[in-house]
Design a protein around this nucleic acid. Structure first.
Length: 418
DNA sequence: TGTCCACTGGAAGGGAGGGCTT
DNA sequence: AAGCCCTCCCTTCCAGTGGACA
């Protein structure tokens, strides 16, 4: 024994994971996708048009998160690439095929979408489309020109498409679905992904019909299907015997409760594994899964709070301070007053009530508070607001913010004394 | 039955900040 | 330098409203 360091105990306990723990992450694309055979077949028949040089129909895919939409598309893109490599010879050459994936929650402006696509076809850095500055029309023309430089079939995957439509309308979609009319050599098709069926109503009828040449729905996985998915990954990710009895069942059951989310199931398993490993256990046990569930939820909330803009943090803090005094079911007016008070305390200008009303809605959508519109008759119509996060922990996280530190000991009591 | 409160939520637009073009 | 463009964050203005109360 050559002395001990604090890391020794980590070295001495054998790892539960094999080298391949990456297979539990959402970015991992497995060799086969259990229980998505029908969807693969269906989408493959659409996309196979490209193998014969034709433009595949545009497709709209509906399905909740973690139902394998992106996985199926990535899977097929990979298979098509393999097929092409197999078939291509000097004599017979299939057209180039490109897949472009854009998440509309991240890129959510018309300009951004066009710029993103355009730059995939511009290698020369000096020619790249700048992230701002040009008129949108010019970006579109540039994109079309570059796209059409040679024969190719381009598939654009627009994930979370509903976000784009709600935020910026369907102008880009109009242009993108029409672009084929203006191109001589290239062909473009669109795969739109959404977890909300309603957004189609907001589309211009022309866009709607062009976009949904094919429609598909991905059903949620049930518990037994989730089990199959997990079991397949366990073989790759864990050492033999590292996953105890009942663990898979619990992960599957918990994820099935939440609209059959495979990503959630895999997360639970991975985090449970990490917790078990850290506590020096020789096996992943059911209790680790429950701890994992808690940890995932709390981490998620904490991260949401941390990344809130200052104004929203002040609103949330105001609500919590009210509740510390035993006042629940606050109105918009009360929350606004508290917010203004806090703004004064830290010496920043307060926004208008109209703006705060919007920010309150945002907090509601993030699940940090509950805000229901309610009428109090003569008392007016307003929101009834409560926090839906643990007060103590939330306050702790809020106080991490440099600009809020001075509010640590402050309480709202004074303002209600008169 | 009508009134009236305290907002809600839509619309329009300003202006700052990114950057391009001439 | 002046004139554009696009996006983000806000403000201003305002019609609309559910339901307790007179």
């Amino acid at each position: 024994m050559r002395g001990t360091t604090i890391f020794n105990r980590y070295l001495n306990t054998p790892s539960l994971f094999s080298k391949n723990r990456e297979v539990l992450r959402p970015s991992y694309l497995p060799e086969n996708l259990p229980h998505r055979e029908i969807e693969i077949e269906q989408l493959a028949s659409v996309m196979s048009t490209a193998l014969r040089g034709g433009r595949p129909s545009n497709v709209i895919i509906f399905g909740k998160t973690g139902t394998g939409k992106t996985a199926v598309i990535r899977y097929l893109a990979r298979e098509i690439k393999r097929t092409k490599e197999l078939v291509d010879t000097d004599v017979l050459k299939m057209p180039d095929m490109e897949y472009i994936y854009i998440n509309c929650e991240i890129v959510d402006t018309p300009y951004g979408i066009l710029q993103n696509i355009g730059n995939r076809f511009i290698d020369d850095f000096s020619e790249r489309i700048p992230f701002t500055g040009w008129p949108t029309e010019k970006v579109y023309n540039m994109l079309r020109e570059k796209l059409d430089e040679k024969d190719r079939i381009v598939t654009i995957v627009l994930d979370e498409l509903d976000r784009l439509v709600y935020k910026s309308g369907d102008d880009v979609l109009y242009h993108l679905t029409k672009i084929n009319d203006d191109m001589a050599r290239s062909k473009l098709s669109i795969i739109g992904i959404s977890n909300d069926l309603k957004f189609m109503e907001f589309l211009d009828p022309r866009v709607k019909s062009r976009l949904s040449e094919e429609k598909m729905v991905f059903p949620p996985y049930n518990a037994s299907q989730l089990k199959d998915i997990l079991n397949e990954r366990i073989e790759l990710a864990f050492n033999e015997g590292a996953v105890g009895d009942g663990v898979v069942e619990i992960c599957a059951a918990l994820a099935a409760q939440e609209h059959g989310d495979a990503r959630r199931a895999l997360d639970l398993l991975r985090v449970a594994g990490e917790i078990a490993e850290r506590s020096g256990d020789s096996k992943v046990r059911v209790e680790h899964v429950y701890k994992a569930k808690n940890k995932i939820e709390l981490d998620c909330i904490a991260e949401t709070i941390r990344t809130l803009p200052l104004q929203s943090k002040l609103i949330l803090l105001g609500i919590i301070m009210h509740e510390e005094q035993g006042r629940r079911n606050l109105t918009t007016g009360e929350v606004y007053e508290a917010y203004r008070e806090l703004c004064g305390r830290i010496g920043i200008g307060a926004l208008t009530q109209r703006r705060i009303a919007d920010l309150i809605s945002e907090l509601d959508m993030l699940g940090l508070i509950n805000a229901r519109v309610k009428s109090f008759g003569r008392g007016g119509r307003t929101r009834e607001i409560q926090s839906s996060v643990p007060a103590v922990d939330t306050k702790k996280i809020l106080m991490e913010d440099e600009e809020l530190k001075t509010l640590e000991e402050y309480s709202l009591r004074q303002m209600y004394l008169h």
